[in-house]
């Protein structure tokens, strides 16, 4: 069965991330049609929109509905719908691809606690590319000179991406173009 738990989204009280773990959501990105029982909730206005992430489904309730009363029914319906991935419809076929899933996982990690950690240390982190099982992560700011950057990449970012996208993937630091490399004042003669 599907192991689920809800996590609130601070910026939007009507939305909840239902964390499912890796490889449960049928695809990533906006949902056009969900499997029948869940789709019924969308049709009757209880649910306004659905969006799949690599390890979660973000459910936004319709106006006038609140989580405390509808939470339990959304949970069991979602649970049931997730066991029936064939009946979900995405906006585009790309959303079903492995590359899309890997890219979503990497973006979520960078937006999540692992990315927060880098930013809290004055670093900048972004996704350069995610293709064919290879993820390139760009670093800047304090990260560019930090001896622990490699450790952070492997133990925080890569580990978190692997949790959302199990299987053989490679996570590397992107080789930055000179233009994106931060220039520091230096006394050294160039």
């Amino acid at each position: 069965m599907v192991a689920l738990h809800p996590e609130p989204i601070a910026a939007d009280p009507r939305s909840v991330r239902w964390v499912t773990g890796a490889d449960v959501t049928p695809f990533v990105g906006p949902v056009r049609h969900a499997a029948p029982p869940l789709e019924a909730l969308v049709e009757n206005g209880t649910v306004e929109s659905l969006c799949c992430e690599s390890d979660a489904v973000v459910v936004r309730l319709g106006a006038g509905h609140d989580w405390r009363t509808t939470g339990a029914s959304v949970r069991s319906t979602l649970r049931e719908a997730l066991t029936d991935p064939q009946h979900w419809e995405a906006d585009s076929a790309d959303q079903w691809s492995d590359d899309a899933r890997l890219e979503a996982a990497a973006r979520e990690v960078i937006a999540g606690p692992a990315g927060d950690y880098v930013r809290s240390h004055g670093g900048q982190v972004w996704l350069e590319s995610a293709r064919g099982g290879r993820v390139e992560i760009g670093f800047a700011g304090t990260c560019s000179h930090c001896p622990a950057a490699g450790f952070t990449l492997q133990h925080r970012i890569a580990a978190a991406i692997r949790e959302r996208h199990p299987g053989e993937i490679q996570v590397v630091a992107a080789q930055l173009e000179a233009s994106r490399r931060q220039r520091w004042l230096t006394l050294r003669r160039r």
């Binding site: 069965m1 599907v2 192991a3 689920l4 738990h5 809800p6 609130p8 009280p13 909840v16 964390v19 499912t20 773990g21 989580w67 405390r68 939470g71 339990a72 959304v74 949970r75 069991s76 649970r79």
Partner: peptide, 21 residues
Amino acid sequence: PIVPPPVDSTELREWADSVLD
């Protein structure tokens, strides 16, 4: 919590699995 944990024992076990995971 925004949605209280489930009452049903199977769903509850899944909830605990998910949280611990």
